[in-house]
């Protein structure tokens, strides 16, 4: 992207572990190859219902986008894909270990990342990294990067928004590298830098008279 001093990488998909090894958190990434959308209904169906994956790894690719496209199906079966933007990923953490095993994915693309604990426990053992969308979200720019819809799986069962959309993409991005193969998190690094200033910011404010169950006043905590 023009005017940015950030390091930029173009990745061919599927990516090898060697390719992913070179990624540093905070770098900008663009993707070319095949990605597929899958979110909660897919995880539930594939893992909890025991349906497994609807197609081979070669057909789906190894990059899972936490996304539902703004898309519709024409009467002739072709597709209109307008904009695509990620949905927040933290809520899918509980399925991820099983998901990596059945899908073989090594790139998860989404919104907001997950905790470094999830990276260490689920991503690192499976040689996977996390790319975050930018903004959020650059839906129109990402839409431009889609060459075609290769196929849609589980449309009937799960509906337009939750179906698996297999997308052929070219210079698809921008994304930011949020986690590396060692499980480091860009968001947590930034949170840690912001935290020291918060105490001064809160000076002169007053905790609410009426408390809430489970409430924390530790501003280094996160809500995810």
């Amino acid at each position: 992207m023009a005017g940015s001093g950030l390091k930029t990488i173009h990745l061919k998909l599927p990516a090898s572990t060697e390719d992913l090894c070179k990624l540093e958190i905070g770098s900008v990434a663009y993707l070319t190859g095949r990605v597929f959308t899958a979110r909660e209904a897919v995880y539930k169906h594939a893992i909890e219902d025991g349906a497994g994956m609807p197609a081979s790894r070669a057909e789906l690719g190894l990059a899972n986008f936490h996304c539902s496209p703004a898309a519709s199906v024409n009467p002739d079966g072709s597709h209109i894909v307008g904009a695509v933007t990620a949905t927040a990923s933290f809520r899918f953490a509980k399925w991820l270990d099983d998901w990596f095993k059945i899908s073989g994915c090594n790139i998860i693309i989404g919104k907001g990342g997950m905790t470094s604990e999830v990276y260490r426990n689920a991503f690192v053992p499976n040689n996977a990294i996390y790319l975050t969308t930018v903004g959020y979200g650059t839906g129109a720019l990402l839409g431009r990067g889609i060459r075609r819809v290769a196929r849609v799986y589980w449309l009937e069962e799960l509906g337009l928004a939750q179906a698996i959309w297999v997308l052929e993409v070219e210079n698809f991005g921008p994304f930011l590298v949020e986690s590396d193969l060692n499980g480091n998190s860009l968001f947590e690094r930034e949170n840690a830098k912001i935290a020291p200033g918060l105490e001064r910011l809160y000076e002169g404010t007053r905790p609410a008279t009426l408390r809430r169950y489970g409430e924390t006043d530790d501003k280094t905590d996160e809500v995810i």
């Binding site: 703004a70 904009a83 933007t85 979200g137 650059t138 129109a140 720019l141």
Partner: peptide, 19 residues
């Protein structure tokens, strides 16, 4: 990136955000 995204959305007449 967002400023470029708004331009892309207007040029292509596509939604600026997928959500």
């Amino acid at each position: 990136a967002m400023l470029e995204n708004y331009e892309a959305a207007k040029q292509d007449r596509r939604a600026m955000c997928g959500d």
